[in-house]
Computed example of a mutant assay.
Amino acid sequence: MTRHRWKPNVTVAAVIEEDGRFMLVEEETSAGLMLNTPAGHLDPGESPLEGCAREALEETAHRFSPTALLGIYMARTRSASQDVTYMRFAFCGELGEREPGRALDHGIVRTLWMTPEEIRASAARHRSPLLLRCVEDYLAGKRFPLDLIHVDPSLHD
């Protein structure tokens, strides 16, 4: 009997706040235009910090430097055709310069700034159920040091 090995999809997300507003991306999905924090899958050979900075750049055209881990979150999406568990490493940090002329990642329509109230009111358009939880944790002051995540040198060998 062959046993299926379960593996969660590891994702990274940037929670970016300035002046009481959060930077979100609006993206095309099979369910229509949805909202999310800049986020995506961790690529082979990159640390969660590196993946978060890369995803933020690809989806917003801005550099991003993680300064703290907000938390590690899990969610599951089930339908007739799939059953996927996501493990998200969410970071807050500093938004850097925009790279002029850089195109946004495929499927990303635009970036926008929203207040917490606007984010709460738009829950039906959230791509991930973790979006609001990450924002709420940020607002609650949750911060963990980046060295909580140990990356062995073998990752980059």
Score class of each variant (00 low, 15 high):
10 V>E: 05
127 R>E: 06
112 L>A: 12
142 K>R: 03
104 L>N: 09
8 P>L: 03
94 E>P: 06
51 G>M: 04
4 H>K: 11
73 Y>V: 00
79 S>K: 08
153 P>N: 08
68 A>H: 10
54 R>C: 09
14 A>E: 04
131 L>A: 15
21 R>T: 09
156 H>Q: 03
38 P>L: 13
109 V>L: 12
144 F>R: 01
68 A>E: 06
16 I>T: 14
116 P>N: 11
37 T>A: 14
77 T>N: 09
146 L>G: 00
78 R>K: 15
25 V>K: 09
57 L>G: 12
103 A>C: 03
48 P>I: 04
77 T>H: 15
46 E>P: 11
101 G>H: 02
34 M>Y: 04
65 S>R: 12
68 A>Q: 06
128 S>I: 02
21 R>L: 12
44 P>G: 05
130 L>R: 00
108 I>D: 13
94 E>M: 13
142 K>H: 00
127 R>Y: 10
85 T>R: 10
112 L>Y: 05
7 K>A: 13
107 G>A: 14
64 F>V: 11
55 E>M: 15
117 E>D: 15
129 P>Y: 00
1 M>D: 07
121 A>I: 10
28 E>L: 10
105 D>Y: 12
54 R>K: 14
7 K>S: 12
34 M>C: 06
81 S>P: 00
43 D>A: 10
5 R>N: 08
84 V>E: 12
56 A>S: 08
118 E>H: 03
145 P>V: 02
